[in-house]
Design a binder for these strands. Structure first.
Length: 542
RNA sequence: GCCCCCGUAGCUCAGUGGAUAGAGCGCCGGCCUCCGGAGCCGGGUGCAUAGGUUCGAUUCCUAUCGGGGGUACCA
């Protein structure tokens, strides 16, 4: 529909110069009295044309050559909107298109041939994933799916560090619990990991090795056992959400393969770094940063910026066209330095897209829970997944705008999972499947011959929504707004339920029935495609 | 102090430079002789405040107030 209007406007622009002066936008009006699509072109161009908006609108309309089998009426309304009404036959053309393309309907090849990397979760293996990580995981996985649906070849990557101070503390935490289990009266340091999983790991070691580890170093078997135990838990928690990765990137490898040293040399050679007070600083102030950050401490240890920049340099060198990072808002101030560092080295940082999501507030019994991994007062992601199921968790997290704060009511989630709108969508799918089964029993088939009979207002609304699918998904992808997928699908499901209430299918007469079967088959396909994009099941029965 | 995000209905949150701002939950009332009632329909004093840009601002800009996060030679 939009493409067609764009065509006839382009044609008209050959006669009306001012039509080239602005981007003409077609949008569905709020009420159907205002047409199927409308444009404010005349309002915007009124000044350039030197005429009143309504006169401009009239002039535009008189210059449009359009096919009357597609457009039934064009009118000027309000201050100068141009409203377009399409013919039923034209609106219905989307149905055969959907039935032919099936799973591919809504996918685009706009970015075919481009490579994208999506890095997300990236939690260090110091404890189980929390609900907050869940938001990260679902945003990352869905964004990756979305990019893939518009043509990108997408890789999912998990970045972690098993070499830092946190990990040493983790190993020593396990050692302390182990010694306590052996009966030693040693105090457990306050800053150590308090979670019960530490004791579980220690107990596992005791069962296997008895007292033999009494004099082991914290960074040996204690740390390595903790790391692999926790990592396998993390992976299991993600698998339960059907989230997997193509690669795991270990920060440590950047030291081992010399990347860190090379990066330091690059900075030094290009005069981007300098030494002061025994530390190495990066000259970013000259690039607009608030101040020069330290990249190597006076102790000789690098700060997080150095490996972060090295990691991104590595990503660039792998040749991606798009590099997406999913971070929580606590990393807000971290990435500008990284991007500035890359820019200083001559990389095109416009290829990097950082998605910052705001924190999840957990409510239990109406009270807010403050989370901290070290203090172990967190709510585990897996606990929630086990309680309400993968699809509810995924839908819950993806439904909100990433830069909007959200709260998670644990009590509600555990008790009333059917209140989640995801059931509304799934019900629409199952309902259609049921109707189609029934229709088959009644020997009522699908036909594309009578689609012009779909002229009930509920049918037309449904058809228009189907037309909008591909463009809306493309916008979700290009604007990195995965939550808008749910806005679309909830609207589509609502339109279907309304249609179903108002229009009978079986019993509406053979010709109309066959057209309606075609329509709901198309709706089912689009719901299925959308649920698949979101990583959710599309049940045939509920 | 400075930086980022947010402030929309009782609650959780969508949404748009336009013509009457929505959904879910909760509450009240309707709708199945008939394809799935996990549904549909009706019921609301709501865009934090003040300026500005614009033909038009809830949307963009500025300030103020309120909430969250950051502001290390932690990550």
């Amino acid at each position: 529909m939009k493409t067609y209007l764009q065509q006839i406007f382009q044609d008209a622009a050959g006669r009306l110069e001012y039509l080239k002066e602005a981007e003409i936008i077609f949008a569905p009006p709020q009420t159907k009295e205002h047409g199927d699509l409308a444009t404010n072109a005349a309002l915007i161009l009124s000044k350039k044309a030197g005429k009143k908006p309504r006169d401009v609108a009239a002039e535009i309309i008189s210059n449009l050559n359009y096919d009357q089998t597609k457009i039934s009426r064009i009118e000027i309304a309000g201050p100068g909107f141009i409203n377009f009404f399409f013919t039923t036959g034209y609106l219905a053309e989307v149905v055969p298109d959907i039935l032919e393309r099936e799973e591919n309907f809504g996918r685009s090849d706009k970015y075919a041939g481009k490579k994208a990397l999506v890095e997300f979760v990236s939690a260090n293996p110091t404890g189980p994933l929390t609900v907050g990580h869940g938001r990260n995981a679902v945003i990352g996985d869905t964004t990756a799916a979305l990019l893939s649906s518009v043509g990108y070849t997408v890789e999912r990557e998990y970045y972690f560090n098993n070499a830092g101070r946190q990990m040493r503390v983790l190993g020593d935490s396990v050692r302390h619990r182990y010694l306590q289990l052996l009966g030693e009266k040693i105090e457990y340091p306050e800053g150590y990991y308090q979670g019960g999983y530490i004791t579980d790991i220690a107990r596992g070691l005791m069962d296997k090795h008895g007292e033999a580890l009494r004099n082991e170093e914290p960074e040996g078997i204690f740390k390595s056992t903790a790391e692999s135990a926790i990592f396998s838990e993390i992976k299991r928690s993600l698998e339960k959400l059907n989230i997997g990765f193509d690669s795991y990137f270990n920060e440590n490898s950047l030291y081992e393969d010399g990347s860190i040293k090379q990066l330091l040399d690059s900075f030094k050679e290009s005069g981007l770094s300098y030494e002061k007070d025994g530390a190495v600083w990066l000259k970013l102030e000259q690039m607009g940063s608030p101040k020069d950050p330290v990249i190597v401490k006076s102790t000789g240890e690098p700060t997080y910026r150095l490996p972060d920049i090295a990691y991104h340099r590595n990503k660039f060198n792998r040749g991606y066209d798009l590099i997406v990072d999913i971070f929580g808002s606590d990393h807000q101030d971290q990435y500008p330095d990284v991007l500035a560092g890359l820019r200083a080295l001559g990389y095109d940082d416009s290829k990097v897209r950082v998605l910052i999501y705001q924190f999840v507030t957990i409510l239990e019994d109406g009270k807010e829970i403050k989370m901290s991994t070290r203090l172990a007062n967190f709510v585990e992601l897996e606990e929630i997944t086990d309680a309400v199921g993968k699809d509810v968790v995924r839908y819950f997290f993806i439904r909100r705008n990433t830069n909007s704060h959200m709260s998670f009511d644990l009590t509600l989630a555990k008790r009333q999972s059917d209140e989640n709108p995801v059931f509304y969508i799934k019900y629409a799918h199952a309902r259609i499947c049921s109707i189609l089964r029934y229709a088959a029993e009644q020997n009522i088939g699908l036909s594309l011959e009578n689609l012009h009979l779909l002229e009930h207002p509920a049918e037309k609304e449904l058809l228009k929504k189907l037309w909008a699918y591909e463009e809306e998904m493309l916008q979700c992808a290009e604007n990195f707004e995965p939550h808008k997928i749910t806005v679309y699908i909830e609207e589509l499901a609502a339109l279907f339920h309304r249609f179903f209430t108002e229009c009978r299918i079986i019993g509406s007469g053979a010709e109309l029935a066959s057209a309606r079967i075609a329509l709901i088959t198309a709706v089912r396909q689009v719901i299925y495609n959308t649920l698949t994009l979101l990583g959710l099941e599309a049940p045939e029965r509920m």
